[in-house]
Simulated scan of single mutants.
Amino acid sequence: MKFAVRSKGNAESNALMLKIRTYLQDFGLVYDEAQPDIVISVGGDGTLLYAFHRYSSRLDRTAFVGVHTGHLGFYADWVPEEIEALVDAIAHKSYEPVEYPLLEVMIRYEHGGKETRYLALNESTVKCVEGTFVMDIEIRERHFERFRGDGLCVATPSGSTAYNKALGGAIVHPSLQSIQLTEMASINNKVFRTIGSPLILPGHHTCVLKPVRQKDFLVTVDHLTLLHKDVKSIQYRVAKEKIRFARFKTFPFWKRVHDSFISD
């Protein structure tokens, strides 16, 4: 088996990265950053997001494992004290593949420019460069509403506990093939109306945002912030690709939620 290790970059994470690499090589596994079968992320959820985007072209051939060195992460099953058990499991045991849905972001441009495609593990947001954000929202090719406010967030189920939750969105179990559209500070008065609630769309539904006035937008894809000009539309849907985690022990999703937000 070929493996790679990604570190958050602090002293503790770097030390664990070197220990994991040494142990796995001692067991005969091959370190290969270009074409790993398994990627071990050491740090937090942000570190795993970087690893996901680094290997997003290999999702059908690469599985991920998270080790958290800070606060409990939603993508991390292991803690530093369990490194020996993790290394032994990777070297000698077969893992249970657990797949989570991803978000496909498709940006199309005025004047027929080439469209841009991204994959997001957590979420994508859209905001104006300046002025009030005004966007027509279509669901399944039908006009749903004209949104006015600060912006919009579209999240995956596994990303529903991140920025989406801070915006008042629902927490969605990652086994559900869906995406969630959540508003950022919508304008609602006698003239303007929005639904005012998060929308959870199933896997076979597509959501398209169409600019009303502005054409330049700041689009985030997980940790990336990108300026797109002359935007004609932004399409969101559940991607055909999935991220695959190598699960060597059970860690129920609702326990993660409890431990992250409720437990002392």
Rank of each mutant, 00 (worst) to 15 (best):
residue 70 G to A: 03
residue 20 I to V: 13
residue 7 S to Q: 03
residue 224 L to Q: 14
residue 197 S to K: 15
residue 122 N to T: 07
residue 107 I to R: 02
residue 37 D to V: 12
residue 179 I to C: 00
residue 37 D to F: 08
residue 54 R to T: 15
residue 210 K to R: 14
residue 129 V to T: 13
residue 101 P to D: 05
residue 54 R to H: 15
residue 192 F to P: 15
residue 66 G to H: 09
residue 185 A to E: 08
residue 8 K to E: 05
residue 231 V to N: 03
residue 30 V to W: 04
residue 51 A to S: 13
residue 83 I to H: 13
residue 140 R to C: 06
residue 173 H to I: 08
residue 260 S to T: 15
residue 160 S to R: 04
residue 108 R to D: 11
residue 134 V to T: 13
residue 194 T to W: 00
residue 248 F to Y: 12
residue 222 D to G: 05
residue 19 K to T: 10
residue 71 H to Q: 14
residue 185 A to I: 13
residue 126 V to P: 02
residue 167 L to W: 02
residue 68 H to F: 14
residue 204 H to E: 09
residue 219 V to P: 01
residue 65 V to Q: 04
residue 3 F to V: 09
residue 123 E to F: 05
residue 112 G to E: 06
residue 18 L to T: 07
residue 38 I to T: 15
residue 198 P to M: 10
residue 258 H to M: 06
residue 142 R to F: 08
residue 161 T to W: 03
residue 259 D to S: 09
residue 72 L to D: 11
residue 147 F to P: 01
residue 196 G to P: 14
residue 237 R to Y: 08
residue 187 I to W: 06
residue 23 Y to N: 06
residue 155 A to F: 02
residue 79 V to I: 12
residue 111 H to A: 05
residue 27 F to A: 07
residue 156 T to Y: 03
residue 60 D to Q: 15
residue 205 H to R: 07
residue 222 D to P: 02
residue 156 T to E: 03
residue 143 H to D: 06
